[in-house]
Amino acid sequence: MSHLLEVAGLRIDFTTRRGSLGAVNDISFTLRAGESLGLVGESGCGKSTTAYALMRLLPGNGRITAGKVLIDGKDIVAASEDEVRRIRWQDIAIVFQNAMTALNPVRRIGDQMVAALTEHQPVSRAEALDRARAIFEKVGLSPSRLMNYPHEFSGGMKQRAVIALALMCQPRILLADEPTTALDVVAQRQVLELLAGLKAEFGLSLILISHDISAVAELCDRVAVMYAGQIAEEGPTRETLLNPRHPYTRGLVASIPSIYDEITTLSSIEGVPPDLVNPPLACRFAPRCPHAQPICAQVPPPMVEVAPGRRSRCHFATQFDVLIAGKEIANVPT
């Protein structure tokens, strides 16, 4: 079965005053039609940068320096500007991190939605408006508000409007970059439920970027845990979170208070993420890892498949229980 989206060996560098900043370093993952993937990790680990690269939307000082992004077999990285423009919004659309400013303040929301559709499909304005109305209803907004300006909407409504805009061309992949950060708790729940509903109804493939691991656990089939521009661990959501094979995932999960269990020890990972201009040469997490071994500071760990569909970038991924138990490790990898 072919993949809808395939990312292989992706590397993204930013030119900064201090030198080249490797925001994303050798990331690979795949997404099947109808599947949903959660991207989690600390602030600055490269989640948004990865998402932007999938649409080739990096800011002026950012460049994809290696790797491929195949959407339906077509490489975005090598495609011409016109080809990329055709793929945008039709095949892959995005809900940006900040809905409050993502809409043009001086154009009516309905007009913005209509313009997005007519840019890609040969439909009349009336047809486009009909579609906008239908989508507004889908996302829980009254179609009578279609001709409002963004400033006339509340935060939660704006977030829904931004999602509506993203659905206008019925994309096959939807990227949602922290779609709930700017909202209050009630609105957060509503938007997540909305996304879950849309996923089921349209068979959307979803990439959800979030700090909220419980949201990812609820919504996503698979999860990729990112650390310092790399994927630390990836696999089916439930297994990965319940039974991590990377110390960073373990720390991340442990730092989330569970609403179901009465967890008494709430630990958070000590230290700060590394400077991406001069990242650690071996394991990037080693300086903060409570279980670090001598090898971790000397040899970069490879990405290894620990089980079918489960990968981890830890030297000790296959003997993880032994590592965290603090016992003597039998055969240290070299």
């Binding site: 649409m55 939307l57 423009r85 039709q90 659309a93 940006f96 993502a102 809409l103 805009l165």
Partner: peptide, 14 residues
């Protein structure tokens, strides 16, 4: 530099 310009690019406008 504003976000809605990024949105316009993402939509696929030239």
């Amino acid at each position: 530099r504003e976000d809605f310009i990024t949105t316009a690019r993402a939509i696929g406008f030239s």
